[in-house]
Simulated assay, not measured.
Amino acid sequence: MHANLRRLPLLLTVAASTYGSAALAADPDHGGDLARRWCASCHAVTSEQKQASADVPTFVAIARKPDFNPEKLALFLLDPHPKMPNFPLSRNEAADIAAYIGALR
């Protein structure tokens, strides 16, 4: 077997670990855009927002909860909820929104 072909699995593993984690990194800026588009009708998603539903927590309040965890929040956003509209979020979008909320701490 050619030496380069024998090293191919190792090279693919290194590439996946190097670039895979960067590709999966959450983007809080994109999460903020999504939040302003999809969440702001109920939640105050920015400090400048003047109107939101009074009976739902602001994103700052969510971020400041002692048990806040962006991974758990992203999973929560992917699960349908009776009190929340069913938005078809991808895993990356849910992670981006959770990262945005985490950045408000």
Rank of each mutant, 00 (worst) to 15 (best):
R7L: 13
L77C: 02
H2M: 11
S53E: 13
Y19L: 13
A103N: 15
A61N: 12
H30F: 06
H81I: 06
T58Q: 14
G31E: 12
H30N: 13
R37F: 10
L11E: 05
Q49W: 02
R37K: 10
L34C: 08
F68Q: 05
Q51T: 14
I97M: 05
F68R: 03
V56H: 12
P9N: 04
A16H: 00
A52G: 15
D29H: 14
A94I: 07
K83D: 04
A23G: 07
K72C: 02
S90K: 07
V45D: 04
E93M: 01
D96I: 05
G32M: 10
R36E: 11
T18W: 02
T13P: 01
S21V: 11
F76E: 02
D67W: 02
L10W: 08
I97T: 04
H2G: 13
H81Q: 15
L34R: 07
T13W: 07
P66I: 00
M84H: 05
D29Y: 12
R6S: 13
S47G: 15
P88R: 07
F68V: 08
P80L: 01
S47E: 15
A99M: 08
R64M: 03
N92E: 09
N92V: 09
A26N: 15
P85W: 03
T46I: 04
H2N: 14
R105G: 15
Q51C: 04
A25W: 14
P9K: 01
A52W: 07
P70Y: 04
K50L: 10
G102V: 00
V45I: 03
L12K: 09
A94F: 06
A25E: 14
